[in-house]
């Protein structure tokens, strides 16, 4: 895509540059600028901005949005520039993409917006995006991934900002099907409990399914209970505020009450199993392991010992519990 271009190196008053004209912008205005700020403060603008004349005496930025933003913040009155005059808009934009790519990695959202801009502003077809741009951006080339990226770029801004921190992109995409107050509520939970990727996904799936379950009626889908109300009604809200517990314990217990609501029969079996196991008063060296989700017929028992006496004590304990009601009832659960 390399092309020759005619240029004039100039110094232009910063007031002549219109940062609101974002035709060629790749970076998102709300992405952090900290490392660049440090560099420009210490060294000034090392690479000139590329500008295009817009209206008489005014210029739009082709390359250098972030540099300009930083220069403005630092109070620069004059900006070194190359003024580009002849090329087509698309050519200039593609050059801007390539120029940015060699100097810094793109954020996922920048890639998403870039694809959307190429499609919606510059009119490129999905086929061209897949053929010419997705590999360039290090994205797997297929329609599914293209759609995922375009969907990310179309998310409401609050959700996009949340993708920076704390939301996982795939969770953000799924969250878009919720109402905005539910999205915000979920983001607050993620921030509050500092949830990583897996926990975000698990919590989303649980809440989403519980919310849809509330709409089930014999005659068909009814109205859903909202996520904040679900959180409140399940008792998770109260647990979440319990300052006697650590943050991770609060989340684990809140998750558990929701899980019990989603899987009532399984949970009652699990509780019964735990109750029976506790009644056996097993020493820590003897462990009972029920099959996962009670799919199976056998309880695994493991034990450890350091001496012959300890082994003998373990054998005695196992013999003692083998005829107990609790063991019989545990086996009946399987």
């Amino acid at each position: 895509m390399a092309q020759k271009f005619h240029h004039t190196l100039k110094t232009i008053q910063s007031a002549q540059i219109d940062p609101q004209d974002r035709l060629f912008a790749i970076s998102l205005p709300w992405l952090p600028l900290d490392p660049l700020l440090r560099s420009v403060r210490e060294n000034g603008i090392l690479s000139p901005l590329h500008l295009q004349p817009a209206t008489p005496g005014r210029f739009r930025i082709i390359m250098g949005f972030r540099r300009f933003e930083v220069a403005r913040e630092l109070g620069f009155q004059e900006i070194p520039c190359i003024v580009r005059e002849e090329e087509s808009q698309l050519t200039l934009f593609v050059q801007a993409v390539e120029d940015n790519l060699v100097t810094r990695p793109f954020h996922l959202l920048e890639k998403a917006h870039l694809l959307l801009k190429l499609r919606d502003t510059f009119g490129l077809s999905d086929q061209v995006l897949m053929d010419d741009f997705m590999s360039l951006l290090d994205i797997r080339v297929d329609r599914f991934h293209l759609q995922q990226y375009l969907s990310l770029a179309r998310l409401p801004e609050p959700l996009q900002r949340a993708v920076l921190d704390p939301l996982e992109p795939e969770v953000a995409l799924k969250l878009s099907s919720w109402k905005s107050e539910e999205q915000e509520f979920f983001q607050n939970l993620v921030s509050k409990f500092r949830l990583g990727r897996n926990k975000q996904k698990q919590l989303f799936a649980l809440l989403d399914e519980l919310r849809d379950s509330t709409a089930l009626t014999p005659s068909g889908p009814g109205s859903r209970v909202s996520i904040p109300i679900l959180w409140q009604q399940s008792g998770a809200a109260e647990i979440g505020e319990d300052e006697r517990l650590s943050l991770s314990d609060r989340f684990a217990k809140a998750f558990e009450v929701l899980y019990r609501k989603r899987f009532p029969r399984l949970s009652s079996y699990e509780q019964e199993y735990q109750k029976l196991k506790s009644a056996l008063k097993l020493p820590p060296r003897i462990q009972f392991h029920a099959p996962r989700y009670f799919e199976g017929e056998k309880i695994d028992v493991s034990f450890a010992f350091e001496s012959s006496d300890e082994l003998f004590e373990t054998a005695k304990k196992l013999e003692e519990i083998s005829q107990s009601d609790e063991v019989r009832k545990i086996l009946e659960l399987l």
Partner: peptide, 16 residues
């Protein structure tokens, strides 16, 4: 939305 849990073969089925 049923009470489906993973079985030994990896598929989800109703709780046994």
């Amino acid at each position: 939305l049923g009470e489906l849990v993973p079985s030994e073969d990896g598929k989800m089925r109703y709780f046994k």
